[in-house]
């Protein structure tokens, strides 16, 4: 299943929620949530798939002020399995109540850092046993990392000044690799042409996709052409 293109989310905030719902379906999760802060615009942003009953209860009890999966987890660099926070009083306070709303305590928060002090947390949860959770986590963690940064970037770029500051800045090598990709060359071909390993090609391509806020290479090619970074051929 394809995920919705967040490039139009600047005009339509609801797309972020749609995106989270799709992530939830695609990765067999119960819920997905994003919370972030943009120090440049001085704004905070939140999008969730949780029921409105739970979010109302959450804010009424000011759980956002104590929830360790929100504030503390965001300071890590690796995804934080909620098991690491389970012993804390503040975690118990939030998740004892969460259980009554059908939300389990198997989950993780993926911390995101942007270049200008902007930070975000992308969290997912599934009500299941620890073993099942462990297996699922290892399977989806890499893709979720990429999606978390993608969503964060799009939320931050909804602010006009941040959009200018975060304009994609590609290296010569990244442009070169995109150009060869647009010409129909495979990663192996490009590696041979440029005398670099195909893994180097892959790393640069991944970086280019992230910078161009694209989830797929064709999307990245399209954007690179529209920005005048490469030319169609």
């Amino acid at each position: 299943m394809d995920l919705v293109d967040l490039h139009n989310a600047q005009e339509n905030d609801a797309l972020f929620t749609t995106f989270l719902h799709q992530v939830r379906e695609k990765y067999e999760l119960d819920h997905a949530a994003y919370a972030g802060m943009n120090p440049i615009s001085g704004t905070t942003h939140g999008h969730v798939t949780y029921s409105s009953d739970w979010t109302t209860h959450y804010f009424q009890n000011k759980f956002h002020e104590i929830d360790p999966t929100l504030a503390e987890a965001r300071r890590s660099i690796a995804p934080v399995d909620w098991g690491r926070l389970g012993e804390r009083d503040n975690f118990r306070a939030v998740f004892n109540d969460a259980r009554e709303f059908g939300i389990g305590d198997c989950g993780m928060t993926i911390p995101v850092r942007g270049p200008y002090g902007d930070i975000g947390g992308f969290s997912v949860t599934r009500d299941c046993g620890e073993r099942e959770w462990g297996l699922l986590k290892q399977k989806i963690i890499g893709e979720l990392q990429t999606l978390a940064v993608h969503m964060h970037d799009m939320v931050i770029r909804a602010d006009p000044l941040s959009r200018v500051l975060n304009a994609p800045s590609l290296s010569t090598r990244e442009v070169e690799i995109l150009q060869w990709t647009a010409a129909g060359k495979s990663q192996q071909d490009i590696g041979d042409i440029l005398s670099i390993s195909h893994r180097t090609v892959e790393v640069h391509l991944r970086s280019a996709r992230q910078k161009l806020s694209s989830l797929t290479t064709p999307q990245a090619i399209g954007r690179a052409i529209s920005l005048g970074l490469i030319y169609p051929r």
């Binding site: 290296s171 970086s207 992230q210």
Partner: peptide, 25 residues
């Protein structure tokens, strides 16, 4: 994806090129 050494203090290594930026790097 955030502040790191290659983007700032070690930028000489990159010879003026922007650093790689990826969630999985």
């Amino acid at each position: 994806t955030g502040p790191h050494m290659l983007a700032d203090v070690f930028s000489d290594i990159l010879d003026g090129e922007p650093p790689l930026r990826s969630a999985t790097l």
